[in-house]
Amino acid sequence: MIQLSGVSKEYRVGPVKVTALADVSFGIEKGEFTVLAGPSGSGKTTLLRLLYRDEMPTEGEIRVAGYDVTRLRRSKIPQLRRAIGVVFQDAKLLPGRTVYENVAFVLRVLGAPRREMTARVMQVLKAVGLSARAQALPAQLSLGEQQRAALARALVKEPALLLADEPTGNLDEAIAEEILDLLKEIWSRGTTILLATHRATLADQLKRRTLVLHRGRLLKDED
């Protein structure tokens, strides 16, 4: 599902060269649940952004869901992204739209038939436990509910790969636990998941394969 070979990413800040990732190589099989751990600034977010081609690597090769990301033509980027769901630490919900509309927005953008839309949105809202809150605005939701809505939005297009960038970063322990349970449930249905977190305890708690990044280098890859 994911293959990185010798991937490096450098940014130029004026005359200074900052290395965000250095010679990172690993592979993730279809259906795996992998944790990408490391402290803030270790390069986790950069790595995720390389996967959905929000950034280009300075060196190396990346393959995701059958796409050669580094050689992907600009016009093909939307196709890659349709295969990937992304959730962030802040839910990034559209504030003027209800939970239902936020989720349905994805299907409308992608041109899904209107008659299928309601059923699919309600199905995914049910899966994340938000069907009763479908008509609520994001401001009326708790942080945990907002993150569930963001997950519903990422999942409604049925992606093969889910990238979760610190999805529990803003949540207290109990609610974070709920989100992790939800992620496990999503994984159990066959979705490949790459979860980035700075919480070492979370990686231990999940007991999944963990890739540890430190200062842009892959320190550990352990099951």
Partner: peptide
Amino acid sequence: REEMEIMRLVGASEMV
């Protein structure tokens, strides 16, 4: 801009 960001993120084509 938030909507555009979401649109690009979920794979909307530039034409859309």
